[in-house]
Amino acid sequence: MQIQTDELKQAANIYRELLRGYHISHQDHEWYPELSNNQEQYQKLFELLGYQLVCDPRGFYYFLPEETSSVSLNKTAQRFAMIIFILIELYADEGKDSQFILESEYIPRTDFAKIIKNKYQKLLEQVEVFNEQDIESKIFEKLVKFGFASDYMGRGYQMRPPIHRFFDVCLDLHKEAQSKLVIEETSI
C-alpha cells in the first residue's frame, strides 16, 4: 500500500498530539476528520514509525504503547480510573444514570466537594489526591491533557468518547467476576 502524503496535511500535528498520549476524538475538529478519512494510511504511516494507532469504533484514536518503549504512567492511569469508578458509583447511588451523565452531560465543579466529603476520601488518598484542588489539578486537568475530557464553559468538565477505555475496565472486571463463578476446581 502506498501512502498518499498529499492527503495527510495534518500529519505532523496529529503525530505530535498522539505521541504525547492524547486521544483524538470527534470533538477535535482539526484532526479527527482527516484521521478518520485516511485511517488506513495513517495506520500504515505510524506503523512504519513504530507506533500502533488504535482506531476505536466508538470514535477515537490513540497510540498504544509498546511495553518496551512506553514511559510508565502508573499514577496518572490510576487517578483516572479511580475518579471514573467513583463517579459511576456516586451517580448510581444518587439514583441517576451514571453512564449517561459521563457520556452526555457534564460534571460540575460543585461535585468535587461531594466526592471528597463522601466515602471516597480514603480511596483518593491512595493516589495522593487530598482535596478539591487536587481533583481539579491532578485529575481533571490531566484528563483534558490526554483527551479524555474537555472544559465545559468553565463550570466543570465534559467527558469524551475515550472514557470508554475505563468503562471497558469495569466491563472486564464484571466479566472476570462472572467467569470466576463458572470455574469449578477439579482435581485432575
Binding site: 505521541l19 498520549g21 518503549s69 512506553s70 496518572t76 490510576q78 483516572f80 480510573a81 480511596l123
Partner: peptide
C-alpha cells in the same frame, strides 16, 4: 478491590496503557 487490596492490585496501567512521550 481498591479498598481491600489497594489500587496497585488492579493493574490499571496494563488495563488502560497510556502513552507518554519518551
Amino acid at each position: 478491590i481498591i479498598r481491600k487490596q489497594g489500587i496497585n492490585d488492579l493493574k490499571v496501567e496494563t488495563r488502560v496503557p497510556l502513552l507518554a512521550q519518551s
